[in-house]
């Protein structure tokens, strides 16, 4: 004879597992704040203003894996420029002494695995607005790894790896910018 509480346990366990699977299966985009690198060290400050634009990223669909939205990448770069004082100021619109353009050209993500390593390449270019001259053109390749120690759920682990690769890319890009003689 099966009691009612035993039936509840039999039904509840698979239902909970299914709910967990559904919740875990939804990918989320890279978090803007998590793409901001911490403490880049001593960087040279350029006494000019800069406007920043980003492209090549994409939104994250419900059945997709984590991507980097353009607006979030732009915000993360702006925040890093401001907090590390790489330029005197960051401006919006058509103003600014320089224009920094960052285009994501590839974001290579693994499909399965325990340790996820995401490889990213972005084209960084800096333009002097007054004479439209190209000051810097650089392909920056970065990578980020997340292990099961960081997150057990695969979609979360992949998002962490994407964020780490973006962080590394922004860090390298701003160090290259800071080293320029403008």
């Amino acid at each position: 004879m099966i009691r009612q509480d035993q039936i509840c346990k039999l039904v509840a366990a698979p239902a909970a597992a299914l709910a967990l699977l559904l919740l875990a299966g939804c990918a989320s985009p890279a978090n803007r704040q998590a793409m901001v690198p911490q403490a880049l060290g001593a960087l040279q400050t350029h006494p000019y203003s800069v406007r920043i634009q980003s492209s090549g990223g994409s939104d994250t669909g419900a059945l997709d894996s984590s991507n980097i939205p353009d607006a979030d990448l732009k915000s993360a770069i702006e925040e890093t420029v401001v907090s590390n004082k790489v330029f005197k100021s960051v401006v919006q619109g058509k103003d600014g002494d320089y224009e920094l353009s960052v285009r994501v050209t590839s974001l290579s993500k693994p499909i399965i695995g325990f340790s996820f390593t995401v490889k990213m390449e972005a084209a960084w270019s800096l333009l002097k607005v007054s004479d439209q001259s190209v000051v810097m053109r650089k392909s920056i390749k970065s990578s980020g790894t997340a292990t099961t120690g960081d997150a057990l759920v695969g979609v979360t682990r992949l998002r962490l790896a994407v964020e780490a690769s973006a962080r590394d890319n922004i860090s390298q890009g701003l160090q290259a910018l800071s080293a320029l003689k403008l």
Binding site: G56, R103, T105, S106, E121, A123, S125, R137, K138, S139
Partner: peptide
């Protein structure tokens, strides 16, 4: 994904 690069700098010109 197709990328067209500058042969000197490896800079991705178009993707």
């Amino acid at each position: 994904t197709v990328v067209i690069r500058d042969p000197q700098s490896d800079f991705p010109l178009a993707t």
